[in-house]
Write a protein that binds this DNA or RNA. Structure first.
Lengths: 131, 131
DNA sequence: GGCAAATTGATAAGCCGTTATCAGGTGCGG
DNA sequence: CCGCACCTGATAACGGCTTATCAATTTGCC
């Protein structure tokens, strides 16, 4: 039987409050506030079980570890900042993907990844030395 | 000085003839026809130098090795078959990505990955036992 | 409280793509 | 056709992310 432990609650809370896709290491850092000393193995174990229950959804970004976000989100895509490496949610989906699909191919889904600078990194690069 | 070797020619020819993004292992298999016994280390070395010369471009697909394609191609995107795992080129780019970019973010590029079944796998799943 | 089973944390081990190493082979300028 | 610098192939080593192991701890039902 699945027990309710402080660690699991801390991990769920950390992911919920991140408000953007996060990886295992970042989850641990965030969960640290609610469950000090939580081990990385627990993060992986818990993430795995949360994926199985459908509470979490994986977000795969090339060149990095798999990130995770709440599964109960409407259709959206992601913005990958080349500076800080963080991934953000972007809303809307402007695309006509069926038109791009070659004849004979069955389109089942799509992924859009925008790349560039997030708001914070964009501001920093414009004003290298802050006030 | 960069020499002209049979292996390098074989690798370039293999990639040129693949007509879709290919990974190191697949490059080796294809190059095998033109340079039997070519080693995987040579593939990696050659790919690296071809990237530096701008002849090749990397194609990063989540959950797999980096693929490579000829750099001299017009803007396009990719279709990832969930059955055979191969990646195909798709032409056109129907999207309004600037509209999706959050305020303060700087959009520099985008990636679109369509997922589903390629023509061959699609045909197979419809007719499991061929004629 | 008490106990069995689930959970945890530290760490070893595994996995996979990639790179380094090095002895032997080879293109090419002279 | 010589010789050396470059290239090659086999394989070991590497780096990162993830999973397995296991003793110690904790949860939840009685």
């Amino acid at each position: 039987m699945q027990r309710k432990t402080g660690q699991r609650e801390a991990i769920k809370r950390a992911i919920r409050e991140a408000e953007r896709p996060v990886g295992p290491l970042e989850i641990r850092d965030l969960a640290e506030a609610y469950s000090p000393g939580v081990g990385i193995a627990t993060i992986y174990r818990t993430v795995k079980s949360l994926l199985e229950t459908g509470w979490l959804a994986p977000v795969e970004i090339p060149g990095g570890p798999t990130l995770y976000e709440l599964a109960a989100k409407p259709h959206h895509h992601h913005f990958h900042c080349r500076e800080c490496g963080k991934v953000f949610e972007v809303h809307g989906c402007a695309g006509h993907f069926q038109k791009m699909t070659p004849p004979g191919f069955q389109l089942e889904g799509h992924e859009v990844i925008l790349r560039g600078l997030c708001d914070q990194c964009s501001a920093k690069s414009k004003v290298p030395q802050a006030s």
